[in-house]
Computed example of a mutant assay.
Amino acid sequence: MEMSFAAIKARIAEEVEAGERRRASRVDVGIDARVRPLGEEGCEATVLNLSDTGFMATSEGDYRVGSRIWLMVPGRDRRNAVVKWVAGHRFGAEFAEPRAMVKLL
């Protein structure tokens, strides 16, 4: 299967733009929290960064891409999210409700 030079350049440009958009709105934090998959007990976590649409955290829990979770921060309402990626003890999730970050800070 051949791919044209123009198609490769367009694909690279799309990936760079998506990465820039994602990083632009992140806020580095170190918030102690609890993460609980729906229907499970959950465990302690540290939220490493937040954006308007999601967060990255580290936790000893076993999270799977596509699973729904609750992010619970002491003194704040819990926020529902979907796990989007997992790498070791780190994972990223997308909030079910846009702009949930504002309610967590």
Rank of each mutant, 00 (worst) to 15 (best):
Y63P: 00
N49P: 06
G75S: 06
G61N: 05
A24R: 15
C43E: 14
N49K: 04
V82S: 09
R90Y: 13
N80P: 02
E15L: 10
V73P: 05
R78G: 06
L50G: 01
A100H: 01
M1Q: 13
W85Y: 13
V47K: 08
F5D: 15
V29E: 04
R11C: 06
C43N: 08
I69P: 00
F5W: 07
G39W: 00
A13Q: 13
G92E: 08
R36T: 13
S59V: 10
M56R: 15
M72E: 14
E94D: 11
E14F: 09
A87N: 14
P37M: 09
A57T: 05
F5L: 12
I69W: 01
D52T: 12
V47H: 03
R78Y: 01
A6L: 13
R21W: 01
E41F: 07
R22A: 09
R23T: 06
G75T: 03
E15N: 04
R90A: 13
S4C: 03
G66F: 10
R26L: 03
E15A: 07
E41I: 15
I31S: 06
A10M: 08
A100E: 04
A6W: 03
R99Y: 09
R21L: 08
V73C: 02
P74F: 04
R26P: 01
I12G: 02
S25G: 10
E14R: 10
V16T: 10
L105P: 00
F95E: 01
G39K: 07
A24H: 15
A96H: 05
N80S: 15
T58A: 15
E40H: 08
A13G: 01
E17I: 02
E2Q: 11
E97Y: 05
E15R: 14
M101S: 08
E20T: 11
V47W: 10
I8F: 07
V82E: 13
A93T: 05
V16N: 05
V16I: 15
